[in-house]
């Protein structure tokens, strides 16, 4: 059974998040303040933290940094739409994903499951074959096939793809992707990253203008979904 800590000052939101996670069979602890949240995090050692960025007694970023100092467990941030810069800051500080308010139970559970599963399975588990949509990737042979046809990817395109594959369902910020694929010192090459993601989509997506797997999180980064969302 997974332990989840909710740090959110609005009791009604806490309530429905708790009910939803209970339904998933999680053990839920909750609090409305940052200070108590950190104390509880130390006591209960949760497998997932759900954190509201706008808490009355402090900056959510402080919580993330303090938490990351001693735990690797995933952290999901709740934030209002339009505060993209806050989300990016939280993700760069070590948060794993975010949800924009208002959000539905279905979205919440999908994110929570993805984060908990990652922990369970262990990232980059030794599964050399990955499949999504009409794409099959053989990580051991560095081969990519679309509808059974081998497709040539440049080294950067391939590195980008493997990075997405190893973080399914998670949002990766522009900065994280640039650092991982191009290395440090490419902080201002956001446009290059976007062009490469576009090329990847043209190679792998059915309709690159309406991608199903390499999704854009506007103002934040990208998210890879291995299963196409029903539209």
């Amino acid at each position: 059974m997974s332990r989840v800590l909710i740090v959110e000052d609005e009791p009604q939101i806490r309530r429905f998040v708790r009910l939803a996670l209970h339904g998933e069979g999680c053990e839920v602890t909750e609090t409305g303040t940052l200070r108590e949240g950190l104390a509880l995090a130390g006591d209960t050692r949760p497998d997932l933290v759900i954190l509201d960025l706008g808490l009355p007694d402090g900056d959510g970023l402080d919580f993330i940094r303090a938490w990351r100092a001693w735990s690797e467990a995933p952290l999901l941030v709740l934030s209002a739409r339009g505060l993209e810069a806050d989300k990016v800051a939280a993700l760069d500080a070590g948060a794993d994903d975010y949800l924009s308010k208002p959000f539905g139970v279905a979205e919440l559970l999908a994110r929570a499951r993805a984060l908990l599963r990652r922990r369970g399975a262990g990232e980059g588990a030794a599964r050399p074959l990955r499949e999504f949509g009409r794409v099959a990737v053989d990580l051991a042979r560095r081969e990519v096939r679309v509808d059974g046809q081998a497709v040539h990817l440049t080294p950067i395109e391939y590195r980008l793809l493997t990075l997405f594959l190893s973080h399914p369902g998670r949002v990766l910020t522009h900065r994280q992707l640039l650092r991982e694929v191009w290395g440090p010192g490419h902080g201002n090459s956001g446009h290059t990253l976007r062009v490469y993601v576009g090329r990847l989509r043209h190679l792998l997506e059915q309709d690159p203008t309406q991608p199903q797997h390499v999704l854009t999180e506007i103002g934040v980064g990208y998210r890879f979904e291995s299963e196409a969302a029903p539209t």
């Binding site: 446009h191 976007r194 576009g198 203008t209 309406q210 991608p211 854009t216 999180e217 506007i218």
Partner: peptide, 26 residues
């Protein structure tokens, strides 16, 4: 600097069910 394609795709994705079954061609 960014491609228009990306923001178009994101807008369609975000609207989701609000598009109410209208197929969108880009």
């Amino acid at each position: 600097w960014q491609p228009l394609e990306e923001v178009a795709g994101a807008a369609i994705k975000l609207l989701g069910t609000a598009l109410d079954g209208h197929p969108v061609t880009v």
